[in-house]
C-alpha cells in the first residue's frame, strides 16, 4: 500500500481538492481502513458541530430595522466617499510623468550611443553625425547634456504644477468637509 492520504482528508471532506488529487484520495480510501476511519471522524465532527444552530433573539425584520436606524445619514456617506478615495489622476499623473521621463531618457541614451558608434567608425561613415551641427564628439555630447538637463527641469516644473493642483484640491475638500460639519451641527 502507498502512503496514507491523511493530510488531504480535510480538504477532501471540504470538497476543496482538484479532480486529480480527489481521484487519488478516493482510490486510496477504497483500500485503506485507517484513512476511511479518519474521514469518518471528520464527518462526525462536522455533524456534531452543525447540530447546534444559533439561537437568534431578534426577528430578521427587526434586526434589519435596527441596522437601518443606525445607518449614518446619506450626506455623511457621500462626503466620506470623497475623502476615502483619491481621484485616479492624483495617482496616475506622477506615474505617467515618470513613464514619459524614463522613455525620453532611454531614447536619448540610445541616440547618444548610436552617435558615439557613428563617430568611432570614422569620418567616412559619419551618417548621423553630419546633421548635428556641433563640432565633433564633444559638441554633440554637450548638446546631449543640455537636452538631459532641459528634460529634468521640464519634469520638475510639471511635477510642481501637479503638486500645486493637488494641494488646491485638498484645500477645497477640507473646506467642503468643514462646511458639511457645520451644517450637521446646526
Amino acid at each position: 500500500m502507498t502512503s496514507h492520504v491523511l493530510e488531504w482528508l480535510g480538504a477532501y471532506h471540504d470538497g476543496e481538492l482538484t479532480a486529480g488529487r480527489r481521484r487519488q484520495v478516493e482510490d486510496h480510501l477504497r483500500d485503506c481502513s485507517t484513512c476511511r476511519e479518519e474521514l469518518e471522524s471528520l464527518n462526525e465532527l462536522s455533524s456534531l458541530l452543525k447540530a447546534d444552530p444559533p439561537s437568534l433573539r431578534t426577528s430578521p425584520q427587526r434586526f434589519a430595522a435596527h441596522v437601518q436606524l443606525r445607518l449614518p445619514h446619506q450626506a455623511a456617506r457621500s462626503t466620506r466617499r470623497n475623502t476615502g478615495q483619491l481621484p485616479r489622476w492624483v495617482l496616475g499623473a506622477p506615474l505617467a510623468l515618470i513613464g514619459i521621463w524614463a522613455f525620453l531618457q532611454s531614447a536619448l541614451w540610445v541616440a547618444s550611443l548610436v552617435l558615439a558608434a557613428d563617430w568611432a567608425l570614422g569620418p567616412r561613415v559619419m551618417f548621423f553625425s553630419n546633421w548635428i551641427t556641433a563640432e565633433g564628439w564633444l559638441g554633440s555630447m554637450a548638446s546631449l547634456f543640455l537636452l538631459h538637463a532641459g528634460l529634468l527641469i521640464g519634469t520638475a516644473v510639471l511635477w510642481a504644477t501637479w503638486m500645486a493642483f493637488w494641494w488646491a484640491w485638498k484645500q477645497n475638500l477640507n473646506f467642503e468637509l468643514s462646511s458639511n460639519q457645520i451644517q450637521k451641527e446646526v
Binding site: P54, L56, F63, G84
Partner: peptide, 28 residues
Amino acid sequence: IYRMCGDPQQAEDAAQEAFVRVWQNLDR
C-alpha cells in the same frame, strides 16, 4: 460573531455595527 464571542445579545449588537461598517465602506 455569536460563535466567536458566545453571547447572543453582544453578537447582535456587534452584527449591527458590522452592517453599519459595510454600508459605510460599500464604495470600496
